[in-house]
Simulated scan of single mutants.
Amino acid sequence: MHELGVVIEVVRNVRNVVKQNELSEVESITLQIGQLCSMIPKYVKECYPAAVDGTELEQTELKIEVIPANGLCHQCQQVFNVLEHRSRCPSCDSEKWGLLSGKEFMIKEIAAR
């Protein structure tokens, strides 16, 4: 499970931000994870308690926003969810499209009190 290593790195980065900005207490951390990202939100959530154990982030809440895997059809310019429509444009049935979103993995927000 590679999620644990990545979540530990996220926690390290958040701790650096907290220190650099002299934040007193972090309430929550929000991650954005794309539907096509290799990180599985469920496993990220399960790894989080181990990653923050013994740190000043131990009591923080982890929030996860899933970013849809959206594609843009090269034929008709329709934006559609690539997974829901099995990589075919629902408007013109084309298989030629470009990915707009869905591979993201980023820290969106660190909410402090």
Rank of each mutant, 00 (worst) to 15 (best):
F80K: 02
Q32F: 08
V79S: 11
L100S: 05
I8A: 14
G98C: 02
E22D: 14
H85N: 15
L4D: 09
F80Y: 08
N16D: 15
Q32E: 12
V14K: 00
E27D: 11
S38W: 12
R113T: 11
A69D: 01
P49H: 11
K96D: 14
E46M: 10
E84H: 09
I33C: 02
L83T: 02
G71M: 01
C89A: 13
W97Q: 03
V52M: 04
C73A: 08
I67T: 00
R113C: 04
R88I: 02
E109P: 05
Y48L: 07
I33A: 04
H85D: 11
V10C: 05
F105E: 01
L100Q: 13
G102E: 07
L4N: 07
I107E: 06
M39L: 15
T60R: 02
A111M: 07
N81R: 04
R88W: 05
M39A: 12
L4Q: 06
V82H: 00
P41K: 07
K103C: 06
Q75N: 15
S38R: 14
S38A: 13
E46R: 06
L72I: 13
P68W: 03
V10E: 01
M106C: 12
D93N: 15
Y43A: 08
A50M: 12
V7E: 03
G34H: 00
K96E: 15
N21T: 10
G71E: 01
E84N: 12
P49G: 00
T55R: 01
G5E: 07
R88K: 13
V44Y: 01
E61T: 14
H74C: 11
G54I: 06
E22G: 15
G34S: 05
S101K: 08
V52Y: 08
G98E: 13
E61N: 15
C47T: 12
S87Q: 14
S24D: 14
N21H: 11
G98T: 11
N81H: 06
L100T: 06
N21V: 08
C92P: 02
V44H: 02
Q77M: 09
V7W: 01
C37N: 15
L4E: 02
G5I: 10
V18Y: 01
G54C: 04
N13F: 07
V44S: 01
I40H: 13
C73E: 00
V26K: 00
C73F: 07
R12P: 01
M1P: 10
H85G: 00
I110N: 01
P68V: 11
I64Y: 06
E56N: 10
G34T: 04
Q35R: 08
E22F: 07
E58N: 09
T60G: 03
A111Y: 05
S94V: 03
H74I: 14
C92Q: 04
E95L: 12
V18R: 00
N70D: 03
H85A: 08
D93V: 11
E22W: 09
W97H: 03
L100Y: 05
V26E: 03
E9G: 14
S101W: 09
Q75I: 13
F105P: 05
N16H: 08
C89G: 02
E109C: 06
S38D: 14
T30M: 05
I8Q: 14
F105Y: 05
E27G: 00
A111G: 01
S94I: 12
A112P: 02
I64D: 06
S94A: 10
V14R: 04
V82N: 03
V44A: 02
T30D: 07
I64V: 08
Q20G: 03
H74E: 11
R12Y: 07
L62E: 09
E22T: 12
I29R: 08
A51H: 05
A111F: 11
